[in-house]
Computed example of a mutant assay.
Amino acid sequence: MLRGDEVGVILGNYLIQRNKLPNSAIANSLVSSSLLGKIASKNKLVFAETLTGFKWISKIDDLLFGYEEALGYCVDPKVVNDKDGISAAVIIAQLVGELKEKGVSLTDYLDKIGEEYGFHLTDQISIRFTDLKEIDNLLTKVKNNPPTELSGYPLEKSEDLSSSKTMPSIGIRLSYKDQIRVIIRPSGTEPKLKCYLEVVCRSKNEANLLISQIKAALTKVLI
Rank of each mutant, 00 (worst) to 15 (best):
M1K: 12
G4F: 12
D5M: 03
V7I: 15
V7K: 11
V7E: 02
G8F: 00
L11A: 03
Y14Q: 05
L15Y: 07
I16S: 01
I16R: 03
Q17S: 15
K20I: 00
K20V: 06
A27I: 01
L30F: 14
S34R: 12
L35S: 00
L35G: 06
K38G: 06
I39M: 07
S41R: 15
S41C: 05
K44V: 09
V46F: 12
L51Y: 11
L51E: 08
G53Q: 12
F54R: 05
W56D: 11
I60A: 04
D62T: 14
L64D: 03
G66L: 08
Y67I: 04
L71Y: 15
G72C: 06
Y73L: 08
P77E: 01
V80T: 08
D82F: 09
G85W: 07
G85R: 11
S87V: 11
I92W: 00
I92L: 13
I92P: 06
A93V: 00
L99F: 01
E101T: 02
G103N: 09
S105K: 08
Y109K: 02
L110H: 01
E116F: 00
E116C: 00
F119I: 04
D123R: 07
I125G: 00
S126V: 15
F129H: 01
F129E: 03
T130I: 04
T130D: 09
E134D: 15
I135Y: 06
I135M: 08
L138P: 03
L139A: 10
K143P: 07
N145E: 11
N145Q: 14
T148C: 10
E149Q: 15
G152L: 13
G152W: 15
L155H: 09
D160M: 10
S162H: 14
S163I: 10
K165A: 13
T166Q: 14
M167P: 09
P168I: 09
I170E: 15
G171V: 02
G171P: 02
L174D: 01
L174V: 05
S175N: 13
D178R: 03
Q179Y: 12
I180Y: 08
R181W: 09
I184E: 01
R185E: 04
P186I: 01
P186V: 06
S187W: 04
G188D: 10
K192S: 00
K192Q: 10
L193A: 04
L193G: 07
K194W: 06
V199A: 02
V200F: 02
K204V: 10
E206K: 14
L209G: 03
L209N: 03
I214S: 02
I214A: 00
A216P: 01
V221H: 14
V221Y: 14
I223M: 15
I223Y: 13
